[in-house]
Design a protein around this nucleic acid. Structure first.
Lengths: 366, 366
DNA sequence: AGCCCAACTGTAAGCGCATACAGTTGTGCC
DNA sequence: GGCACAACTGTATGCGCTTACAGTTGGGCT
């Protein structure tokens, strides 16, 4: 029965072919089809060819579900992080306005970016490492209400789950952890039994603060992040450690929220300008730079500014931002590594990996 | 048989509980367990409570594999995009240098970012839309050699696949498309039968070029992207269309590669400075701005510069970059929408959605 | 020629769930 | 009190694959 290629080529996926279909066409058993796909060397070449021909001809793609069920593992790793709030187009209807081009003028007064580069970088690291190790990567962001459903859903789909600190309620995490290994990112180990991967927040902040103090500055402002952030807490500790070792330092502590807008707001409101503003993250520091630019206050001459994170935008800001670079991509990779290590050996002790950071001196505090 | 909670709570996942375990504990059939999870209202409240208690007590999380197999759909959508080349730590060993903080000075001569924000944005849009519609999102980047394996792998795991143009060989895509719907991003429809989602490249570039010409500029340089990019081709068309409608315009066309480094290189090498440099994307334009800064050539007074994409970095560059904003997040969302539309109705005609763009006037070409 | 063993290949039993269909129970009504 | 029917619940099957185990084949030996 000869079939013209085109005939089946544009068939509208009447029914996805299965091992049975392939086996029938190749005149072998389904076991042989499975072998050709999983362990080609265990099949005679001639048989293998017949099977592969059938695979190609039928457009066969094995079902990962069936495979996962039979093999008892999915080969997928999940990454869960705090959600980008769904601001854009809340009703979700897109209009195809083909031919539509509008022109607007952006005078820099509009809403600043809300985007957090941090997660992109972590995600990139995770993606690279996961596929390198033969795992697919599934991503999910925390949506307020449906968080539990999503976490449960993803937990049933993966062999292991990496979660950003504070994005999943402890109880839910504990529930999930009974089924698959969980690694927590950006938090050092507390009393829980999970693996952790974090960066050297306190020593990093301490080092950059010491650098600031080494310039002779004594009147400092510290713009912190949200109180429930473990990262923020550690950074503040590092800052205090540095400050406490030097006499005659005055500190004004302001609570920010890690955002650029808030950094700008705060900096616009400063009356008695300090000699240096140490920010808990880069976004905040960039907001401060925005404000100083607007107020025509020279950085670093009138006030020095430092950040923390090492996001790309800081390399191109005006002035270029002095900061502590944390290895975000490595963080993602390390999470996957920790997870695969535990999958290989579930009996491993819970580990807590702390990645090194780097103080990067640029123009905002030379 | 009473069991103290703690006993099982810290069990090291001896074996993930299944519906059978839950059913046994709740003294119901597995069908009822399944109903409680999928369709709670179809079960008497009292029974439901017993089941939920068992779920909680046992730490039960349903297997998506088994569910997907039985239900014949995975509820996962895949996103495939060109890979970030795996540059960092090629051997993959991480050293936990806890306590390690190094200090470096960054004088802006080092390697510029290689990172492409474009994909991050698209990914974000896809992620939002997928989960909103009840699909999980699986991401994969194209790795040179193993591309075929990865695409096949992911194809077996998802109900639909979104692919960035030119990242997957046609033949492979055709193979996959016989099993699941495929939508191609950032390319208008050619001869294939896939759904497409793209942006209004040509009209957008035409509009911004017209704006440049409206300032009176007549000697232009155009820095294009790689030749095999459909986006680039369309933008160049738009540029030409604008230029052709005005007399006395001279154009020098240079071939770039969409990267910031290359943009800088090219701009550093310019001898006869044009009145305006129109770039095929923002990264290139930012590189040009870098170069002009270094050469102390004033933008826009001595030369105007425009980009295309609307990445966040352009909002904060010096000077702020005039560009064409393309809705990257919307692109990702639209891809998911197209996919779900086709899943709902496989008989749909292949559609080609073109999203509108927006010319954003900022300081580099006011 | 007969035997043994290596190299293949086939058979069959699940993996954990959804669901059609077949009970079972409880309620309102005559 | 008995019947019809609604509201639940249980039984049984199959989704598409992996894999232990049981054939089958053929070549090298004696």
């Amino acid at each position: 029965m000869q079939t013209r290629g085109t005939r089946e080529d544009d068939a509208i996926m009447a029914k996805a072919p299965t091992v049975y279909d392939v086996a029938e066409r190749a005149r072998v058993s389904i076991a042989s089809v499975s072998r050709v796909l999983r362990n080609p060397d265990s099949v005679k070449e001639q048989t293998r060819e017949r099977v592969l021909e059938a695979v190609r001809h039928l457009g066969y793609v094995p079902s990962a579900n069936a495979r996962g069920l039979a093999a008892r593992r999915t080969n997928v790793i999940g990454l869960f992080f705090p959600g980008h709030d769904d601001v854009t187009g809340s009703d979700g209807r897109l209009v195809a306005a083909s031919g539509g081009v509008t022109v607007v003028r952006d005078d820099a007064t509009g809403d600043p970016e809300t985007h957090n580069y941090y997660f992109d970088e972590v995600l990139r690291g995770a993606e690279i490492e996961a596929w390198r190790r033969g795992f697919a990567l599934m991503v999910a962001a925390g949506r307020g209400a449906s968080r539990e459903a999503i976490v449960n859903d993803i937990a049933g789909r993966v062999d292991g789950l990496a979660v950003l600190a504070r994005t999943v309620p402890d109880e839910l995490l504990a529930h999930v952890a009974r089924r698959i290994p969980v690694v927590v990112l950006a938090a050092t180990r507390g009393t829980d039994e999970f693996d952790h991967v974090s960066v050297n927040n306190a020593p990093g902040m301490q080092a950059i603060t010491e650098h600031v103090l080494s310039t002779g500055a004594r009147r400092l402002m510290y713009i912190a992040g949200p109180e429930d952030s473990p990262d923020d807490r550690e950074r503040l500790e590092g800052f205090r450690a540095a400050v406490d070792r030097v006499d005659g330092v005055t500190v004004e502590l302001v609570r920010g929220d890690f955002s650029r807008v808030r950094g700008r707001e705060i900096a616009l409101g400063i009356e008695a300008m300090p000699e240096a503003i140490v920010c808990a993250n880069d976004q905040t520091a960039l907001g401060v730079l925005d404000a100083m630019g607007r107020r025509s206050i020279s950085v670093p001459d009138d006030v020095m500014v430092t950040g923390f994170d090492g996001i790309a935008a800081g390399r191109h800001s005006t002035p270029r931002l002095t900061t502590v670079h944390q290895p975000m991509v490595e963080l993602g990779r390390a999470a996957i590594q920790a997870l695969t290590a535990r999958l290989d050996d579930p009996a491993l002790d819970a580990q807590s990996l702390v990645l090194p950071v780097q103080v990067v001196l640029r123009d905002s505090c030379p």
